[in-house]
């Protein structure tokens, strides 16, 4: 394809991504190095019978003028990054000096908003991703050995947890684990504790969020594996059977190696998606127990005072996290392309 026609074909799409993905990233980075203007204070001298007094008031006009002149705010360097809501360097070093065991240090760190968010985000990502892969594989093998006419129905119901809006799917589960909901009541019965409440317990809330994560994403792994299973060579399976391989050995030595490239694909998509975990925290109202990086940004942006600089700094840190997470994959893709 000629350069010229390529350019015109790609232009609209490239423009959209440039304006609404690339520039916002730049804008976020710039914003994160600025903070809002301080209000301009002016000193007014008021005189009365007893003499003159100086008082200070906010100069509204000057503040507005300053905002007009420099809409970004004032340059702050890494100040926002280092404050208590982000990397919290001074708090971390103080905690480091104060505590004398790793366990204690870790517990203290989770009180800092940023470390609380990243702690949950990483735990969620690295617990949910492998579980999704395993569960998806198990379901795929099971559906593949079910009778053919049942498979359509099985796939239909399997797709539902993935297709559902994350916010809505999480709400549905949340209402069921409510202390008065069906799962919540069952849990109370099983634990023999009538006051047991998922909402009140941090470990239970973490587990619940991860259960939701697996429930939501397992169908994706299932579908990909199921499609992969359709392309397993029947001859190889037959040969393995003739050689005396039982079912487990067939799975272990024929099916799993065949599906391995798909696992890389699923893992990549899952790492990307789980790292942005956000909606279930809103639905479960879990922010007292678990927050994520995305939730922290959402929280800064919403509400009465929009803390744009704070949100921007968290965004930059999140983007760095995504970059680190993806770098092995990107390097590999690039090498593979180079070889071609």
């Amino acid at each position: 394809m000629k350069h010229r026609s390529f350019f015109w074909f790609v232009l609209p799409s490239a423009l959209a991504m440039l304006l609404f993905i690339f520039f916002p990233i730049i804008s976020v980075i710039v914003q994160s190095f600025h903070v809002e203007h301080e209000q301009v204070i002016k000193t007014v001298e008021t005189c009365d019978l007893f003499g003159c007094k100086e008082s200070t008031t906010i100069d509204q006009e000057a503040t507005a003028a300053l905002k007009e002149a420099k809409p970004l705010g004032q340059f702050a360097g890494f100040k926002t990054y280092l404050d208590r809501n982000h990397l919290a360097t001074s708090e971390v070093s103080a905690t480091w000096n104060r505590t004398n065991s790793w366990r204690d240090f870790g517990a203290q760190m989770l009180n800092l908003p940023f470390y609380k968010a990243i702690g949950f985000t990483l735990t969620f990502t690295f617990v949910v991703t492998p579980l999704v892969i395993i569960l998806g594989f198990v379901i795929a093998v099971a559906v593949n050995s079910a009778a053919k006419r049942l498979r359509g129905v099985l796939i239909f119901f399997s797709l539902l947890p993935m297709m559902i809006t994350p916010l809505v799917g999480a709400l549905i589960l949340f209402w069921m684990v409510d202390a008065r909901g069906i799962i919540g009541t069952t849990l109370q019965y099983l634990a023999g504790d009538p006051d047991l409440s998922v909402k009140a317990s941090t470990p239970l809330m973490w587990i619940m969020l991860m259960v939701y994560g697996v429930w939501h994403a397992a169908p994706f792994a299932f579908i990909v594996y199921y499609a992969g299973l359709q392309t397993v060579s029947q001859d190889t399976l037959e040969a393995a059977r003739v050689d005396g391989a039982n079912r487990w050995l067939q799975i272990r030595h024929v099916i799993i190696p065949h599906l391995l490239p798909l696992t890389t694909f699923i893992a990549l998509m899952q790492l990307m998606d789980n790292f942005r975990v956000f909606e279930p925290i809103v639905s479960f109202a879990a922010n007292a127990h678990a927050t994520s990086l995305s939730w922290a940004i959402y929280n800064d942006l919403g509400g009465e005072t929009r803390q744009l600089s704070s949100a921007a700094a968290t965004s930059v840190l999140t983007i760095l996290g995504v970059a680190i997470l993806l770098s092995p994959v990107l390097v590999r893709t690039w090498r593979e392309f180079d070889r071609k």
């Binding site: 609404f20 520039f23 990233i25 914003q31 790292f275 959402y298 800064d300 942006l301 965004s315 983007i319």
Partner: peptide, 9 residues
């Protein structure tokens, strides 16, 4: 990129 990071931009 998580969409919410773009929103703050």
């Amino acid at each position: 990129m998580p969409p919410i990071t773009l929103v703050s931009g």
